[in-house]
Amino acid sequence: MVLVSEIFTDGPKNYSTALQKEVYHALAKLKLDFQRVATDEVITMEDCQQINERLSMDMVKTLFLCNRQKTAFYLFVTSGTKLFKAKDFSQALQVARVSFASADQMETMLGTQIGAATIFSTLIAESKEVQLVLDQEVVENEWYGCSDGTTTGYLKLRTTDVLEKFLPFVQRQPKIITI
């Protein structure tokens, strides 16, 4: 069982990572409403169940993928309950088969560790080489639940705020696919 805090509507007093600090500064600058919880370390989607219950929403699944040559990188956001099939993803994007990028690449390009992949990595310059891909199912949800760049902090925001305010702020246009 994962310990989940009460719900907060402001950022943490101390930041665990540089990315986490950037996330909350961006949310404040954009004046985006959010709810957040602090947790024990959470790595898997199964671990997210108590977070989903506390925040009354479903966490997205964010995957960091690359081609075999490690020359093309993708940050794919899909439903937390959807089974990922590399073949379906590759066909939808019309690209060569993909696999999971390494932990080192994740740290370097996204500023996160395994289990903390987040759309908020688009705040850092190193992520510019990473193509952002969203599942249509995520785009249609009212709420967007994700990591704050750590494995111990999780957010709930309006999906429209992510799409219409945050992504323009970081000057990123996602590719939207259906799989």
Rank of each mutant, 00 (worst) to 15 (best):
A125K: 14
E164W: 00
V130R: 01
C146G: 03
K156C: 14
E140M: 12
K128G: 05
V138C: 05
V139T: 05
T160H: 07
V130T: 06
C146V: 15
T151E: 09
A125C: 01
Q131R: 14
T151S: 08
T159E: 01
T160N: 08
L134P: 02
L157E: 03
R158G: 00
Q136K: 13
L155A: 08
Q131N: 11
L123K: 00
G149N: 02
L123A: 05
G149L: 02
E142P: 11
L134E: 05
L132K: 03
D161H: 13
F120L: 02
E164G: 12
T152S: 15
L163S: 02
T151R: 14
Q136C: 05
I124Q: 13
L155F: 09
S121N: 04
E129C: 12
E142C: 07
T152F: 04
T160I: 10
R158Q: 13
L163T: 04
L123N: 03
S127N: 10
T152D: 10
Q136L: 08
I124S: 00
L134H: 03
E126N: 11
K128H: 14
G153Q: 04
F166K: 04
L132R: 03
L123F: 02
I119S: 00
F166P: 01
D135A: 13
T150Q: 08
E164F: 04
V133A: 08
G153Y: 09
Q131T: 15
V133C: 07
V133L: 06
K156D: 12
K156S: 12
L163M: 14
L123I: 09
E142Y: 08
W143E: 04
Y144V: 07
N141T: 14
D148R: 00
E126D: 13
G153T: 07
L123W: 05
E129P: 01
A125E: 15
L134A: 04
E140T: 12
E129Y: 04
G149F: 03
I124C: 01
G145M: 10
N141M: 12
T150N: 11
L163H: 06
I119N: 00
F120V: 04
S121I: 03
E137W: 06
V138S: 02
K156A: 13
Q136P: 00
Q136T: 09
S147L: 06
L155R: 02
Q131I: 14
N141A: 12
N141P: 00
V138Q: 00
N141R: 14
E129M: 10
F166I: 07
E129L: 10
T159D: 03
V162Q: 02
T150P: 13
T122H: 04
T160A: 11
G153H: 09
S147K: 01
E137T: 15
